[in-house]
Design a protein around this nucleic acid. Structure first.
Lengths: 127, 127
DNA sequence: CGCATTGTTCAATAGTTCTTGAACCAATTG
DNA sequence: CAATTGGTTCAAGAACTATTGAACAATGCG
């Protein structure tokens, strides 16, 4: 039996991803910033780990938001040793809600300053 | 002096419309249904009045959700006699968040049954 | 005017969400 | 094994949200 904490957490199947939950998840400034940072550096690597987001909030609060992002189907978590790597579920989201994720990310990008999306962040290249 | 209740309520200017507030507003099932019904019959009339949404909830609860939709910039309310006519602020939203509203509405349309978007509604043509 | 219609506002309540720190778990390193 | 690293889980509190019914406001109509 694999120990509880080293198992990959549960993720909803593609068809279980619900629009209201996704929108609610993206409406929180910290979660929007997490998604934004993931999207912003997808051309470098599709994954980031928890520690890459410490500029946004404390560890336990981040774990709370990561769980929300997983449960609504926005993110996937892969366990590797003591690290958990997160990535956006782009394909699943595009299949369920075409154009939505990009519209949100592009809209967020326009307001990046106002939304403090990159405050103290060094995991993302500035353009 | 115009009596308080017959004045047009305050609406945010285009540049004051904030992404997190809009997403949060759209994440509530009742508000999503309101927006969806407004969008669905725009080809008939750009406006609906409060009573057209009684299938979704009670009067006072609807007034609460209408206020939220106004305050976040999704809807505009026009006062005409004892009626208030609502319409989507399509142009402002498109200018601030290109593609977002349509992505949400199209995604909602795909899940209309699951989301109970049209339950008991006769203000909207079925396709 | 008196009354119906259309909606809003208020107060109360149940439930939810975010945040924090402390405790904990698992894997790695010395 | 002990200490460190990387994250999660738990408990508690403050703040916010949705919902309800009753009271109210403004208009329209007989």
């Amino acid at each position: 039996m694999i120990p509880a904490m080293s198992r990959t957490p549960l993720h909803p199947a593609r068809e279980q991803i619900e629009l209201p939950m996704v929108l609610d998840c993206l409406s929180d400034p910290i979660r929007l910033a997490i998604v934004y940072q993931l999207a912003r550096q997808e051309h470098v690597s599709s994954e980031l780990c928890c520690g890459d987001f410490y500029a946004l909030s404390g560890k336990s609060n981040l774990a709370y938001h990561f769980a929300k992002l997983r449960e609504c189907g926005l993110m996937q978590t892969r366990v590797a040793g003591t690290n958990r790597f997160m990535r956006l579920r782009r394909e699943d989201l595009e299949a369920r809600f075409p154009g939505l994720l990009d519209a949100v990310i592009n809209s967020a990008a326009k307001d990046a300053d106002r939304l403090q999306l990159l405050s103290g962040c060094d995991a993302v290249d500035a353009d």
